[in-house]
Amino acid sequence: MKNDKLASGPVGDMQRKRTRRNWLLSAPALVVLAAAASGPLLIVLVYSVLSAGEYGGVVWKFSTDAWFNVVFFRDIFDGTTTLADAHMKILWRSVRLSFMTTLITLTIGFPTAYVIATRPRETRSFWLFLITVPFWTNLLIRTFAILEVIRNEGLINIGLQMLGVIDKPIQMLYTDFAIMVGMTYVYLPLMVLPLYASMERLDFNLVEAAYDLYATRRKVLRRVIIPLVKPGIIAGSILVFIPSLGAFVTPRVLGGGKKMMLGNLIELQFGAGRNWPLGAALSVTLLALVMAALLIYVRSTQSHSGSVR
């Protein structure tokens, strides 16, 4: 550190005292977090290379079976090895549905955030408030609400039947579509909020300048507004993509165990599946995917701020 040469003087003493104070103040929180948030992740990593116990739990014996089983499936009877179709399907569904959810929330969230950001200052906070309320509402309750809307005896089917458009209900529940609608619904505020934050900072002089230089509405949007709020677009996409990837409650309620995502597959291994090492390996896989997404995010924000400075 560049302050090291001051360390011997009274200024350095003050600074060292301060740093010690800061660490002491932070320590209790860090201890709890290490015990009940960060630390256990290491145990998951260890469990992923142990053997499965017969009735759940593990046997303390090194084994790569769990990792092998993430990708491959060995037939118990003839011993042949094939790609684990079920796992691949679930992994692919998780990534695909998360991606679709991100795309849809962006499509809806971008115009919404823009409209809020262009309201007069006094009314803006009201509209923002309306976005925040669902955000702080229980995720399970919001998923239940969607359930009530799309189930066979739900609002949409009843409505369509009363209008005579259909004569028997459309099965929407327990499909990929249901999960996607549910995730879009519960994660939409996570897209709108960062988008709004970057649009609020947008210098509308630049929009005026673009119109002044003969740009059409569409060109103003494409050439000026979208490039300038890109950090918000990236932040919102990451904030939606990451929890979608690890979603558990929404696919469980709306996929009904028929359509699983990674989170449900992990739960299965700790419950009925009784294969804790596999569950741990799948958890590490999910964590790795999330970290990869975060890394891409950090990279893109750094390259952005780097070019601004």
Binding site: G39, P40, L41, I43, L262, F270, S283, L287
Partner: peptide, 20 residues
């Protein structure tokens, strides 16, 4: 460290705590 619970999927933390 403080923000870590916001980044790790809940299901991963959940199974980690289950094991611990």
């Amino acid at each position: 460290m403080i923000n870590q619970p916001l980044m790790v999927p809940e299901i991963v933390t959940a199974v980690a705590l289950l094991i611990l």
